[in-house]
Amino acid sequence: MINYWYYTGDTTYNAVTKQALLHQAGDDGNFMPLNQTKTLGNDDQGFWGMAAMTAAETGFDDPPEGSPGWLALAQGVFNTQVPRWDTSTCGGGLRWQIFTFNSGYTYKNSISNGCFFNIAARLALYTGNATYAEWAEKTWVWMNDIGLINEKYEVFDGTQNTDNCTSKDHNKWTYNTGIFLMGAATMYNYVRSVPP
């Protein structure tokens, strides 16, 4: 709905779109609201972060004075996910689930890592801060090393850390390829925008 306004200029749905985004932002400004967080996955949180990033990039109506801005909300998502980068198995990567009690905690999947990569790349381009770009590069390298992106650039769904990420779920979904494609195009822009 942010894109609907961005592409058409029609403001009819801006207020309700803004209300929906801010309702989910949570007390800590990281899209982990108390009413949802118990079942929240890294990918779910990432989708909200990407929506906030789109709002920043397109210049969507700002949140009210005193509330975190769109950029800060996307940074909130990024900052809460960085400590979840898990080197205890498979040499890194984000798990699908945030909490041990949710099924899928042992799964490291492309969409969770794709959201993180996508947001990191976009924060790098928006702010010019190299730390975000380094995380994007690191995530890309891990995805390739572990084989979730193969030599033909096919992006597979995910892998279990219970066998150290050896076997894969080979399902291919449009949005997994798309999320890395957009992030790569963003990194291309970022690298060109920074002084040598």
């Binding site: 982990m32 990039e57 801005g69 950029l71 909300l73 940074q75």
Partner: peptide, 23 residues
């Protein structure tokens, strides 16, 4: 798209947002 780098970014940020939140 807007950005701080292009000088067109208007969204307020916080580089420390979300740090120390209850996860």
């Amino acid at each position: 798209w807007r950005s701080d780098v292009k000088g067109t970014g208007t969204s307020s940020g916080d580089a420390n947002a979300g740090k120390g939140s209850k996860t």
